[in-house]
Computed example of a mutant assay.
Amino acid sequence: MHIKDRSFVISGGASGLGEATVRDLHAHGGYIAILDLNVDNGERIVRELGADRTSFFEVDISDPESTASAVKKAMTWIKTTGKPIGGVIPAAGVGMPGKLIDRHNEPIPLDRLEFVLNINIRGVIDLIRLCLPHMTTTEPTPDDKERGVIVLVSSSAAFDGQPGQLAYAASKGAIRSMALVLARDLAMYGIRCVAIAPGYFESAMTAAMSQKVRSSLERVLEFPARPGKGTDFAQMVRHCVENVMLNGECVRLDGATRMPSRM
Results as ranks from 00 to 15, higher is better:
Pro64Ser: 13
Glu114Asp: 14
Arg129Thr: 11
Asn118Gln: 07
Ser154Met: 03
Asp102Ser: 01
Leu100Asp: 06
Thr136Tyr: 10
Lys73Tyr: 09
Lys145Phe: 02
Asp60Tyr: 09
Val124Thr: 05
Lys172Thr: 05
Gly95Gln: 11
Ala68Arg: 04
Pro84Cys: 09
Asp143Thr: 04
Arg176Pro: 05
Glu139Lys: 08
Met135Pro: 00
Glu146Asn: 01
Phe56Glu: 00
Glu65Lys: 13
Leu166Trp: 12
Thr137Val: 14
Gly161Thr: 02
Leu130Tyr: 02
Phe115Ala: 11
Cys131Gln: 05
Ala169Ser: 12
Arg147Ile: 00
Gly148Met: 01
Gln162Tyr: 04
Asn105Trp: 15
Asn118His: 05
Phe115Gly: 07
Asp126Ile: 12
Asp63Met: 04
Met178Ala: 13
Arg147Thr: 03
Ala167Tyr: 07
Gly87Lys: 07
Leu100Cys: 09
Asp144Val: 10
Ser66Cys: 06
Phe159Ile: 01
Ala68Lys: 09
Trp77Cys: 06
Val94Trp: 02
Ile108Glu: 08
Met135His: 01
Leu130Ala: 09
Ser155Gly: 08
Ile101Glu: 06
Gly164Met: 03
Val151Ile: 13
Pro163Glu: 14
Leu127Met: 10
Gly123Phe: 08
Glu58Ala: 15
Pro109Trp: 02
Thr137Gln: 13
Gly148Ala: 04
Ile128Ala: 03
Gln165Gly: 13
Gln162Glu: 07
Glu139Asn: 08
Leu182Phe: 08
Asp144Cys: 10
Gly87Ala: 10
Asp102Leu: 04
Ala91Cys: 04
Val149Asp: 09
Ser156Cys: 14
Gly95Asn: 11
Leu117Thr: 02
Met96Thr: 15
Asn105Leu: 14
Ala170Arg: 08
Pro107Lys: 03
Gly173Asn: 02
Leu180Pro: 07
Asp60Asn: 14
Arg147Asp: 04
Ala70Ile: 13
Ile119Ala: 06
Ser171Leu: 00
Val94Phe: 06
Gly86Glu: 14
Ser69Val: 05
Gln165Tyr: 10
Val71Trp: 04
Thr137Phe: 11
Asp60His: 10
Leu110Ile: 14
Tyr168Ser: 01
Phe57Thr: 06
Gly98Leu: 11
Asp144Lys: 10
Ala179Pro: 02
Asp143Arg: 01
Thr136Asn: 15
Pro109Thr: 12
Pro97Ile: 01
Val149His: 09
Asp126Ser: 14
Ala170Tyr: 07
Phe159Tyr: 06
Ile89Ala: 05
Thr67Cys: 11
Val94Gln: 03
Asp111Ser: 08
Lys79Arg: 05
Gly87Arg: 06
Arg129Cys: 11
Val88Glu: 07
Asn105His: 13
Ser156Asp: 12
Ser177Ala: 10
Glu58Ser: 15
Leu113Trp: 07
Ala157His: 05
